[in-house]
Design a protein around this nucleic acid. Structure first.
Lengths: 299, 299
DNA sequence: ATAATAGTGTCTTTCAGACAGTATAGT
DNA sequence: ACTATACTGTCTGAAAGACACTATTAT
């Protein structure tokens, strides 16, 4: 039970410490950058439709060469995790004004064919229309893809001491001619008090690594938070109309909302300005801005 | 722009790949193990009081020697993150039946004096009374500490383009004669669309690393989930009375609840059994068990 | 006038909170 | 009978959902 370190002072111990006795995993930060953008309105005086988008990068190197991946990279030894996420974000987009939140850390052994790579994922929300100056990166291999998902299968089994839920989700990404699609299977199994959630990529056409899982996880988080926080306001420009905001909510939640109820609900998050839209071919709408006064919790 | 890897096939590339060109951080898994236990009832026919507890281990080595820390350890190269958390859990307690959930990944540069260590934290809920057979570990340096926290300062500043919220929390841990205490400062700052949340340990008496932050983060998560999921039922034994369950909710949420309303609310999570308590010196209570039928979401 | 969007008033249903009241073992 | 807990019925008010209605601009 005697340990040779027992005799050392903390100073001495730290001096002797060798971090490289064991091999370490690599750690990356991968960021899911969301934005909602206007679809060019074809009809002459209709409002433009909104689309939920994410930023993807075409890989130039192995592995998954020529496939699309979330922007990210290795964490430097002298860099905080959050800072790494900011750095990568800044490298891909030219945006300073972002909402950034850690999502989840993915650590399956074989998620990267090169070596053991643990990925700490982040989600960023940026206002796409004003900051379209993206892709500081060299070629045109950084693109916004429209994102749609749907549940294509769901089943539930209840047995003696637990249950099992399975949900198969299809994710569709589109950018001009380029179409990517993948299926993710989420299994939640309960046995006694033990609950395990497994996420598995069933099919991945054009998307690298396990990034389809991360995308779906982030989408769920965005949806959940949109329902009861003001998070979606980070996707808006400085000033916006309530109808625009409603469209953003609708495109995230994938359902239509009633204007009267919507306005009542988000009233606490917004503040009137003196401005309004004009030349719209119909009644002008008042412009609002994100209200600071409310002090939602830290979570 | 030509890259020498361009000429390689994926196979060749992976064969040549050397993960050790750059130095890598170490990655640990640290688990916050919650339990709610009965306080030995002093009064002769009163119900025992419940206390929220967490499991801590006294460190035998530098750094933070003789201080208390969350159970955890380095992630092995051939081990999934979740598996690492299970393994550590199993090593400290003898429990199989646990609820386990990833919390957050802490990656500040200087959180460990030895070297760069990134910690992926987990939260486990176990039923303390039935599984008191903890501490498989050698000495008596694995202990359950009662956990209490309070907000000792809070302030809010609103300025032109944002606001700043500060919250100072005091955490008190107790196990017999051993008392640990620490203060954590949480700052949420918004400037334009950029939000940053910083957590800082202001004072830490007897608790190693930044573990007080992790403890508070987990506590907040447990509270939030207790409010609108059935998570707290994982802290119960197979069969329990509704009053016991209510006490568990009360000790987690740190407020008293009205029985009638509480029962209405948790009715969906529980299922009657045919059994009831007896010899209690008052009206016996029906025993309930955790209901499986409901299929809450995956989140 | 009409198309298209902007914006409001109010009924209903649902749900959370408060509280008073009844029930039943053991001593 | 009394103590301590177990359990229920119902009032109230707030919030969510549904829907009908009015308002205002450009062409």
């Amino acid at each position: 039970m005697e340990n040779e370190n027992d005799k050392l002072s903390e100073q001495e111990f730290l001096g002797k410490y060798d971090a490289n006795v064991y091999e370490h995993p690599s750690v990356t930060v991968d960021t899911l950058i969301f934005s909602v953008m206007d679809n060019d309105s074809s009809n002459y005086r209709k409002l433009p439709e909104k689309e939920l988008k994410i930023l993807l990068i075409k890989r130039k190197d192995h592995p998954y060469r020529n496939q699309w991946a979330l922007p990210g990279g290795f964490v430097k030894l002298d860099e905080n995790l959050d800072d790494a996420a900011y750095r990568e974000l800044k490298e891909e987009t030219n945006v300073n004004d972002v909402y950034l939140e850690q999502l989840y850390t993915w650590g399956d052994i074989n998620r990267d064919p090169r070596t053991r790579v643990i990925s700490c994922s982040y989600m960023a929300l940026i206002n796409g229309n004003s900051t379209l100056i993206t892709a500081s990166s060299d070629a045109g291999d950084v693109k916004w893809f429209s994102l749609k998902s749907k549940v294509i299968q769901e089943n539930k089994t209840i047995f003696e001491k637990g249950y099992q839920l399975e949900k198969k989700i299809s994710i569709m990404l589109e950018c001009g001619e380029v179409k990517l699609s993948c299926d993710v299977l989420i299994t939640k199994k309960k046995e006694h008090e033990m609950i395990s959630v497994t996420r598995k990529v069933l099919k991945s056409e054009g998307l690298a690594f396990d990034h389809s899982m991360i995308i779906y996880y982030g989408l769920e988080r965005l949806r959940a938070k949109t329902e009861f926080t003001d998070i979606a306001l980070h996707l808006m420009e400085q000033e916006f109309t309530l109808t625009e905001l409603q469209n953003v909510y609708e495109v995230i939640l994938d359902k239509t909302l009633l204007a009267a109820n919507f306005r009542r609900k988000i009233n606490m998050y917004v503040e009137e300005t003196d401005n309004s839209t004009k030349d719209a071919g119909h009644r002008p709408a008042r412009l609002y801005k994100h209200k600071q006064q409310k002090s939602y919790d830290f979570y």
